[in-house]
Structures are given as C-alpha cells and as structure tokens.
Amino acid sequence: MSNLFSVILLQATLQAMTPILLASLAGVLCARVGVFNMALEGQMLVGAFFAVVGSYYGGSALAGVAAALVAVLVFTLPLALGTTWLRGDNISICIALNLLASGLTSFLLRIVFGVSGTFSDPAILPIVKLRWLWLRNIPVAGILTWAQTPITFLSWALIGVVWFLLFRTPIGLRLRGVGERPDAAQALGVDVSRYRIVTVLGSSLLLGLAGAQLSLGTVSVFSEDMTAGRGWIALVAVMLARSDPLWAAAACLLFGFTDAIGLRLQSIGLPNQLTDITPYVITLIVIVLNSGRSSIRLRMR
C-alpha cells in the first residue's frame, strides 16, 4: 500500500515538474546571457492557450504544440528586441508581458471560444502519454516512464542539452561571457545583441512546450491564469540554482514534489484552498533557508 502511495506520488511529482522544469531551463539560458526573464509566467500562459487553440482547430496535439511554439515566439519578440535594440527597461517589459498574457488569453478565450473561466471540449486532443510496455517491468525506470508525455521525456533530455550547450560548446562559452561582461564580449567581436535575441527567442520555445504540457499534457483544458505562479516558481529555481541547469532541475524536482504532496493532501480530505498553496509556502521557506548562503540580491535600478 505504501508502495502504491509512493509510486503515485512519484509520478505526480514528475508530471507537475515538467512545465516548471522547462520554464526554469529557459530562465537559466536567459540569465546566463544577461537577461533577467521575469516573463516566464506570461510566456507559459500564452503557450497553454494557443496549444488548446491549435489542438482544437488543427485536430491534433501536434498542431497544438506547433501553435504554442509559434505564439510564444511572437509573444517574446518585445522582450528579445526590447532589452537589446530598444534598450528598454527589462523589469517593466516583463511585468507588462505578464499582464498582457493574462488579459489577452482571457480576451481571446471569450472571443474565440465564447466562454469565460474555463474551456474544455472533446475536440481538444491531448498529447498522448507513452506507455512503454517493454520498460514496464524494469523496477524504477518502469515507474518513472509510465504514462508520461513525450514533452516530459524531452524536458529531461533538455537538462543535459542545456548543460552541454552552456559548458562545453563555443556558443555556450560566448553566451556566458555575454551575460557576465557584455562590454568585454563585444570588444572580442561577439555580437551581444544577437546572442541575447537568439537566446531569449530560443528559450521561448521551451516555454511553448511548457504551456502545451500544461494545457494538453494532463487534462485537455484551458482556464484563465492556469499557470498559477509556476513561472515564478521556475524563476525562483533559477535563482536558487544560481543559473546552473543541474541545480535548477533539482530545485524543480523539489517544487514538483511539493505540488504532488499538495494533491496528495487534497485526496486525503484537506480543502484544496490550503493544499494549493503548499508549493508557494515551501518555495518561500526554501528561499529563506537558502538566502544566507547564496547572494541572490537584485535591486531595481
């Protein structure tokens, strides 16, 4: 019985972790190239909405994912261009984007689907969950991989890909240099704006995936502000990890676990108003505990 409990908990953890993990990997890339991306929340929300639009009208989950990727890419343009060519204020841009995402998805929800609050319909096709029978009987791997979406598997692979990109390739070296000393990188002929634009836009694809996973991964539904702070938690993971992808993944695992615990507590009868805040309370506790050690200071202006 306790075994069953832990298996379900583990699977719930991994499911809850995927969007946060993808968002925090994007956050890591942006932070490394010197753009403090606080718009993760809004980017993910836009992804979630357009994944539903794509799936509903395109008739396949793949169309949903594609729509999410394109939509988030377009939505991220103001951030990518604003912090580079236009020299805008990064924090204000991100705050505006988050509010825009919230307003725009609510508006379009009413315009496109004619509903408010939540939209669900059998015509929204979910992303298939992979059930690999040949792995089923291997003790740990079987549990870990059972009934997860391809996006989840991809997100795991991306931890390594991001790490490899950052710390082994010339592009990663330059990207880190651009983030640390843009003047020095520029003086050595590395185009700072180009690196930033490409990184911010490239990382936005991860948020498209995160959004699609959120709205098409577990349930096929979009509801207003359904990201519910996941983007901010991902940002906290980036800060706690000091922009290291491996540590960020570890932090996401922790946050995914708290999410799963919340669900678990709900299933044993606690009101969901209280269980829903578990991830945030635990996140706050973790930052306070960790704050003495890491210097995650950030002052506006």
């Binding site: 103001p78 805008g88 204000s92 009413r110």
Partner: peptide, 24 residues
C-alpha cells in the same frame, strides 16, 4: 466586446512605455 479588452489595452500601453521611454 468583452470588457477584458481594456486590460489588454492597458498592458499594451505599459509595454510600449517600457520599450520606448528613455532609459535611466
């Protein structure tokens, strides 16, 4: 027309301000 449009207009205003106001 859903009234949440006003929220969208406001967010676009703020976004444009953030993009184009002279930086400190």
């Amino acid at each position: 027309v859903p009234r949440v449009l006003t929220m969208v207009l406001q967010a676009i205003t703020i976004l444009l301000i953030a993009l184009f106001r002279r930086q400190r």
